[in-house]
Write a protein that binds this DNA or RNA. Sequence first.
DNA 1: ATTATCTATAGATCTATAGATAATGC
DNA 2: ATTATCTATAGATCTATAGATAATGC
Lengths: 212, 212
Amino acid sequence: MKNNEENGGTEQAIMAAAEELFLEKGYNRATTTMIAAKAGVTHAMLHYYFRSKEQIFTKVLDKNLEELLASFRPVMKSGAPFWETLESGISTHFDYLMKHPELPNFIFETARYNPELMEAYKPRIRETLQRILDFHIDVLQKEMESGNISRTDPVQLMLDIVTLNLSAFMFIPTVGKVFPEIGEDRLEQMLSGRKAEIITLIKSRLYGNSHE
Amino acid sequence: MKNNEENGGTEQAIMAAAEELFLEKGYNRATTTMIAAKAGVTHAMLHYYFRSKEQIFTKVLDKNLEELLASFRPVMKSGAPFWETLESGISTHFDYLMKHPELPNFIFETARYNPELMEAYKPRIRETLQRILDFHIDVLQKEMESGNISRTDPVQLMLDIVTLNLSAFMFIPTVGKVFPEIGEDRLEQMLSGRKAEIITLIKSRLYGNSHE
DNA sequence: ATTATCTATAGATCTATAGATAATGC
DNA sequence: ATTATCTATAGATCTATAGATAATGC
């Protein structure tokens, strides 16, 4: 009996099922039993290929955390004028999340309820966040000194951007869970409307706006 | 053997323990075993007084959801000029959450992973949110027409305010769980810094600001 | 007699492993 | 001989209840 051709092998089938369930339910609520069922394999197979639930989860987390960190990177492609750079950063970040809408909640859930599973990634997370912060502190400082933008605490500004972007993807689908009658379409609309709104919000925070 | 004088009776002790654990861990992760242990009573007592885990949870949810909905109400004490009203609304809402920092995450967690437990509350939630929205649509419309504020989609503006306020209380403590070395003080600072920042943000969104 | 408590246990479910069995690659 | 799979089962843990026992209020 070999591998299980269709889904690219048993191991891949397990990984795929695990990823889907972990992203949807988080570490504690997604059981190995459910994962096996969804992958269409016997329960014992999970342990044959991965030894433990924690190890499967770690593989899933690894991949997805890497993706979330990557979503912050394009923010820092520099060269262009300040606002253009920042705007395209926010925009790229938002678009990235649009393609992985479950990402913010998955990482949040893990960070909050299973922080020990993130231990190994702490240095890399730290480093990424620090780098982003340093980059922006610098640029913001210069812009503020030349009077181009309002005075702001860089940490707070980063929190503005990050929490606005992330929470869009956390809250809107959750509202949909409690009120399914709102309809996918309407929720989609609200979500994609967020992007322009967030950019406008940050722009007027920095530059003011003249009642357009 | 009567009641268990100290903690105001066994029933109260169970409720208190249950509330603490449900708020911290959510419905699924807080087990009846843990609740009994924390309350210092035998496990059977939970079922003697409340019959089921679900019923204990419902009592906790009931109380806390009521509080969250109440946190939206003061936003609508009207009479004063538009911006004063809105600002005091945001501020009051933020202060309210400051006193119940676990509230946003608790309700979010329940809505996302146990929406069926919120069924009974849907009408009241709907109604509260609708009322707030209607109120603001009205006032915003007027202000926009007289050219006092920038053109905005009221739903998006409400999302701005609500997600900014709620996510402050969800993300900052969670960052603290992954990086305990940041320290309570620093986190407290970031959190209370949010309030002024959020108000400034919304104000400049509506009125612009002249680089102060 | 009623109310409160404890002990013991049922029945589900979850993670994990041991050991038998079948297929594949030499 | 190695690799993959299945069956069966161990051992934890979780929610829930039955039934015995003790305290309280008449």
